[in-house]
Design a protein around this nucleic acid. Structure first.
Lengths: 212, 212
DNA sequence: TTCATTTTATTAACACTGTTAATTATGTTT
DNA sequence: AAACATAATTAACAGTGTTAATAAAATGAA
């Protein structure tokens, strides 16, 4: 009987329509403005209907956050073709930074807000976190290959990877939250114009080079 | 006439009582749970009275965020007595990290949330940001002195300082937001036990040492 | 086809939130 | 005591996430 399948598909369809509507609102107006009622209005359903497809708002945000990780993952994927590990590491940094700047709301949801990761801790007790770990695994692998190629030889791989991630995350966060621009406009000796995000990143690359 | 002064003092008193109540709630239950109504109940006033002393909730949060910067500033202050610049730089990192872990809500308000800094941009158009800049100025100064002492000689001071801040901020953020612990529990090759915050920080210090 | 059952969607309501306008109470000055 | 200014309050608006009870629709068996 194909009827049940068609129903299942219909159900899955509506689930997706809810997510699409939520994504639209989220990317346009941010987290707060993405209310259950507005999502419902967009898909022309009653607000409470949404609760038949998602546990709560955090559930929807978790789904969106997964989409974000898929996007980042796909951008990281193409870097596998950069064979030289140190080149790849630098490119990863650029891609990460570019992703954060191009998708600030996604980045906030994925790395800054605590709501989605608390949802993971509460409901995904198993090992369903693939998307997120994959990116970090890729970083660890690349650092390992860098070490094999003679870079960072005196450092522990995981520790070094965490340092790289911390720096990139901190840099992107400070930029997105406006702290970087704020320092640039208020500190007198920074008035020599210039894109401090770019400059700082270049400084980071220079540091990595010195660490060979 | 001392009456007017006493009235002024009374007004300033209530303003402080509001802030204290807000601080209590904020440190106990976080940002969201600190509602105007709860603050009002705590000081036994009507909710709307608060609007006679603070423009809105963001204003209160800005005041709290300033208190946070004063606290961090005082902790940074004692570091002035560490004469060796590189030692002082390392100590600054430790103090920053310790502050973030001991005052997670303050840290979030000061460096992670965008609400207070948007309030600054909107209402403190002048140069009233002292508290925040002071800490960064201290960092720049220390980096400069490190350079004078032969460290990081090939790097631009401001760029290097931004890198240090980014790394420390990223590390603390990832820790507070739970990402660090999450990676530790899910990634198989990280199961060797251990405080990854501490290990990563030590790795950072090692990096700085290699950069001499 | 009709009736009973299950699934899906809706309305109404709860308990909150920040915030504003209009009104009352308080205290000061003439 | 009357007039005024300040301070505080009540009532209300426009939202929020979420749940329980009810109505509608689709499905199963007789």
């Amino acid at each position: 009987m194909g009827i049940k399948e068609r129903k299942e598909k219909h159900k899955e369809d509506l689930r997706q329509r809810i997510l699409d509507a939520a994504k639209d609102l989220f990317l346009k107006d941010g987290y707060e403005a993405t209310s259950i009622r507005k999502i419902a209005e967009k898909i022309e359903f009653s607000p409470t209907t949404i609760y038949l497809y998602y546990k709560d708002k955090a559930d929807i945000m978790y789904a969106l956050h997964q989409e974000g990780f898929k996007l980042l993952g796909s951008q990281f994927g193409v870097l596998q073709h950069v064979s030289e590990p140190f080149e790849r590491l630098k490119a990863m940094g650029r891609v990460y930074m570019s992703f954060a700047l191009s998708n600030p709301d996604f980045y906030e949801l994925m790395f800054i807000m605590k709501e989605p990761i608390e949802f993971v801790k509460a409901h995904c007790h198993d090992e369903e976190w693939e998307e997120g770990e994959q990116a970090f695994t890729a970083l660890i692998l690349t650092v390992d290959q860098c070490k094999a190629a003679g870079y960072f030889t005196s450092f522990d791989t995981t520790t070094f990877a965490l340092n790289v991630w911390s720096l990139m995350h901190g840099l992107c966060s400070l930029k997105l939250q406006g702290h970087l621009d704020h320092m640039a406009t208020t500190k007198a000796h920074m008035l020599e114009e210039g894109d401090w995000l770019e400059k700082t990143f270049e400084g980071f690359i220079a540091m990595l080079n010195s660490l060979k």
